[in-house]
């Protein structure tokens, strides 16, 4: 069975925020995100809520993870880098800054080992939706239960 990541439409426009084609790229990004969100909702599996600024460079929102019937919700923010899409997006969970070593300073989640090689291989066809689906999603699934077990985060934090 193909994974959710495989079903997200691939992007074609190779342009960063400073490129003249950024608007085209952004159009594709929106389309991919909408598609991904619809897929998630259809499977009763939506897990984030994000909103860009008008330029489409700064994004903010929330992501959540349900562990043992409790919903843990975190703020999410990221910025499209200037060298995008050659460089992957750095996803930031500010609330978890300093709570785990699987994270860079400033709350950026560590994607070097697993996601970065995949991204560099697939770029420019991967976009924001892919990053959320294939990087943040697995990271939450791997790290949050550990953090809950360690007592680093609690239901109300």
């Amino acid at each position: 069975m193909e994974s959710a990541g495989d079903r997200i439409p691939l992007l074609t426009v190779n342009a960063g925020p400073r490129d003249p084609n950024w608007a085209d790229r952004l159009r594709e990004e929106y389309a991919a995100l909408i598609r991904y969100i619809e897929m998630s909702q259809a499977e009763d599996n939506d897990w984030f809520l994000i909103e860009p600024d008008d330029s489409g460079i700064h994004w903010r929102g929330k992501c959540w993870y349900i562990h043992e019937l409790v919903k843990y919700e975190f703020n999410l923010e990221f910025e499209i880098p200037a060298t995008y899409p050659a460089t992957p997006i750095e996803l930031v969970l500010p609330e978890l800054d300093g709570k785990t070593h699987k994270m860079y300073r400033g709350g950026k989640i560590c994607l070097d080992i697993h996601f970065a090689p995949l991204w560099s291989r697939k770029q420019p066809s991967y976009g924001i939706a892919h990053a959320l689906c294939l990087a943040l999603g697995p990271w939450l699934a791997a790290e949050i239960p550990v953090l809950i077990d360690q007592g680093v985060i609690t239901a109300n934090s």
Partner: peptide, 24 residues
């Protein structure tokens, strides 16, 4: 530019939708 705004609005709208209650 208009189109981008519309897409953004569509994204927000999509996210506001109630997700289907799916049970295994």
């Amino acid at each position: 530019m208009e189109e981008l705004k519309r897409l953004k609005a569509q994204l927000m709208q999509v996210q506001q939708k109630q997700s289907a209650n799916r049970l295994t």
